[in-house]
């Protein structure tokens, strides 16, 4: 063994081991074996797997981004719907307020009109009563005048025909 090692060492020390052509065949053979093994492993196993993983990752990332985009769109839509509902409610509320106002106004107007009519009726009734009272008063004045006139005539010793007295009083009263 020792002799062989020293032999190897001697051949090596004679020059660079890189230029020792006796080992070239060995190195080239094992290099070709190594390269072929690595090539087969890479093409059969490693590279397709890594390409798959990378593609899968890219896909899932783009999917996630698309989903996020979707959710964002939905959020924007929801916000729009909310805003729309809000403005609708506002319009409805103002409509209700306006109609209530109009109703109230109409009621008020009709109530005022009713009240006016009632007042006018009352006034007319009152006037009628006053008229009656006035007529009654006139009649009683006539009576009083007649009786006073006949009594005066009697007291003055005259002899008065009640009918002529009445006539005279009436003409006087008219006159």
């Amino acid at each position: 063994m020792a002799s062989n090692t020293s032999q190897v060492a001697e051949t090596a020390s004679a020059g660079m081991p890189q230029l020792d052509f006796s080992s070239f065949g060995n190195q080239i053979f094992w290099l070709v074996v190594t390269l072929v093994v690595i090539y087969v492993i890479l093409t059969r196993l490693a590279l397709p797997r890594i390409a798959d993983v990378l593609a899968e990752r890219r896909e899932s990332i783009s999917n996630d981004i698309a989903a996020a985009e979707d959710l964002k769109l939905k959020a924007v839509e929801a916000e729009e719907a909310y805003n729309k509902a809000l403005s609708d409610a506002r319009i409805e509320a103002s409509n209700i307020v306006a109609s209530a106002k109009a109703d109230m106004k109409a009621e008020l107007i009709s109530a005022i009109a009713n009240a006016d009519v009632e007042i006018a009726e009352k006034v007319a009734e009152g006037e009628k009563i006053i008229q009656e009272i006035r007529a009654n008063a006139l009649e009683s004045v006539e009576d009083v005048a007649k009786s006073t006139a006949s009594a005066l005539i009697l007291a003055l010793g005259g002899k008065g025909d009640p009918k002529s007295v009445e006539k005279a009083v009436a003409s006087e009263m008219k006159g």
Partner: peptide, 28 residues
């Protein structure tokens, strides 16, 4: 330069093209 010497892994002998050497080991 001794570190670059190609030697057989098992036993001694000439380095033939199929000999298992340190080249084989480190490529493996």
């Amino acid at each position: 330069m001794d570190q670059f010497i190609v030697k057989p892994l098992f036993g001694d002998g000439p380095v033939l093209w199929y000999t298992v050497t340190n080249v084989t080991l480190w490529m493996g």
